Each structure stands twice: as C-alpha cells, then as structure tokens.
Computed example of a mutant assay.
Amino acid sequence: MIKDPSISVVISTYNSIPWLEKTLWSYEHQIFRQFEIIIADDGSNEETKEFIKNYIEKSAKKIIHVWHEDKGFQKSMILNKALTACNAEYVVMSDGDCIAREDFLQIHYERREPGHFLSGGYYKLPLELSEKITEEDIATQRSFDAEWLKKNGLPASYKNQKLTSGFVTAKIMENLTPTNASWNGHNSSGWLKDLKAINGFDERMQYGGQDRELGERLFNYGIKSKQIRYSAICLHLDHARGYKNQESIDKNKAIRKSTKDKNKDFTPYGIVKEEK
C-alpha cells in the first residue's frame, strides 16, 4: 500500500454500487501506481457503505471513504471534505460512473505543470453496454477498444475517434479542438494548494456547473488550463439523473455569473467557512 502518494484520486459516488465497482476495478489496472483513492460519498445508504468497506479490505490500494449524511444533492460539500482528506500534492477528480483507461493517471501525472490544471473529457456509453462491461473487459482493456465496443452495441459516431487516436493524433486534436479547457468534474486535475487557495467548491451549488465555477475561480486566481480530452480517456456509464432540476441550474448560473462579473477567485462558502 502506498504511504506517500503522488496523486490523490477523488471519486464521487451516491448509491450506485454496480457503477462504482466498475470504476474502482479500472484503478486496479493503472500503469501509474503511486496514488491513493478518496471516495467522496454524498450520503449513500448502508448497503453502499458495506460494499465500500468490503472493497477496501480486499484491495491493495490505499482507499479512504469520506461520507456525510444524506441531505439531498450536496456534491460540492462532500468534494470539499474529500479535498481535506487528500495526502498528495496533486489531485485527479473523477466520478464513480467513469471507467479509467489504464494510462489515465499516467497522462495526468506526466502532463501536470505548476500554474496549470488539466481538462479531460469522457466517452459516453449507452445504458445496455454500460451494464454489459465486466471486470475482465476492464482488466484486458478491451472495453476501450472501439471495435469491441461496436460489436457490443456502440453506435457509429465521429466521436469514436476519441478512442482510436494514438498519442500523436491525440495531441494534434487537443491543439485543434474548439472545446474550452474547463474544469470538468468527471476528468480534471490540479494542485491541491491551488484548489485550497480558492477555497474549493462553492457549497451553495447543487447540480449544474459547480465544477465549471471552480475552474472559473482558478482562472481568476491566475491558473491556466491544458487540454487532455483526447489523451486521458474514461468511459462514462449511462444512468438516470433524478437530482437534476431547473431551479438548481438557474441558481448555479447566477453564482457563476457573479464569479465572472466580479472576477472572484475565492468563495466564502467553501472548505473554510467565514465566521458570521
């Protein structure tokens, strides 16, 4: 077990054992080995807690389970608690429904740079294919093979090139893509000191852009971003989003507008709370 990790991997989850298990399997097969896992659990039930406890006992990885009481969608809050539990200087953040390719952490580690954060993307799978992927499919990495995925129900799409591009092509595509290199909660990384300097996530924000708002404060703080969406690959497993609502999205848009208009690089509603 790693005592002094170079990377803390923060994985968010909530009552989704099958997807979390597939996600954790993918970190058992990473080329890069010097990491710990922080499971940021937004109030999952006893069944999920028992699953995580049992998984930790059988895994050789250093895994820390950070949990709080279920009070609705409070991902920003649990992510802040997870950040305070990190033991590495560098943090990779993803979700418990994202299977990481074997070189996922290696790419984040090699591309990290002072004064920058890394912005990755994901490749979304349909529900039936998400359910079909097994531990062996992840261990052999065939779950990242475009031809194997097509044989198992993946529709044809120009987006498939994200899975087939080699190292050189991926770098070229990252230089050419018009997609903004924003902080994306499913696949981004940065220095813990920078994330703490802006006080982490704004805990007023529920579903809808809280990750982007954090990235916008990093920009305002003077941190630049680098695109790795074609290099650091993860597969997003499909599921329903019962927590999505327009009221939350509208509130978050207003907070993001304030961050942008006032050039804010710090939230008083983050890791450290301002005394009233």
Rank of each mutant, 00 (worst) to 15 (best):
residue 105 L to S: 00
residue 105 L to E: 00
residue 106 Q to G: 10
residue 110 E to C: 04
residue 114 P to L: 13
residue 115 G to D: 07
residue 116 H to P: 07
residue 117 F to A: 02
residue 119 S to M: 07
residue 120 G to D: 01
residue 121 G to T: 06
residue 121 G to Q: 03
residue 122 Y to G: 14
residue 126 P to N: 09
residue 126 P to R: 05
residue 127 L to H: 15
residue 127 L to R: 15
residue 131 E to P: 04
residue 132 K to V: 06
residue 134 T to K: 09
residue 136 E to T: 05
residue 137 D to L: 07
residue 137 D to C: 10
residue 137 D to S: 09
residue 137 D to N: 14
residue 138 I to E: 05
residue 139 A to M: 10
residue 140 T to S: 15
residue 141 Q to A: 14
residue 141 Q to V: 13
residue 142 R to S: 10
residue 142 R to V: 15
residue 143 S to F: 04
residue 144 F to K: 02
residue 144 F to Q: 02
residue 145 D to R: 09
residue 153 G to K: 07
residue 154 L to C: 01
residue 157 S to Y: 08
residue 163 L to Y: 00
residue 167 F to E: 13
residue 169 T to S: 13
residue 169 T to M: 13
residue 170 A to Q: 04
residue 177 T to S: 15
residue 178 P to A: 08
residue 179 T to N: 14
residue 180 N to K: 12
residue 181 A to E: 09
residue 189 S to N: 04
residue 189 S to Q: 05
residue 191 W to L: 12
residue 197 A to K: 06
residue 197 A to H: 01
residue 198 I to Q: 02
residue 199 N to T: 11
residue 199 N to R: 06
residue 200 G to R: 00
residue 200 G to C: 05
residue 201 F to V: 06
residue 202 D to C: 07
residue 203 E to S: 11
residue 204 R to M: 08
residue 205 M to S: 02
residue 205 M to T: 00
residue 206 Q to T: 10
residue 206 Q to P: 01
residue 211 D to W: 04
residue 213 E to H: 07
residue 214 L to M: 15
residue 214 L to W: 05
residue 215 G to I: 04
residue 218 L to W: 02
residue 219 F to A: 09
residue 220 N to K: 00
residue 221 Y to H: 15
residue 225 S to W: 03
residue 227 Q to W: 11
residue 228 I to Q: 02
residue 229 R to I: 05
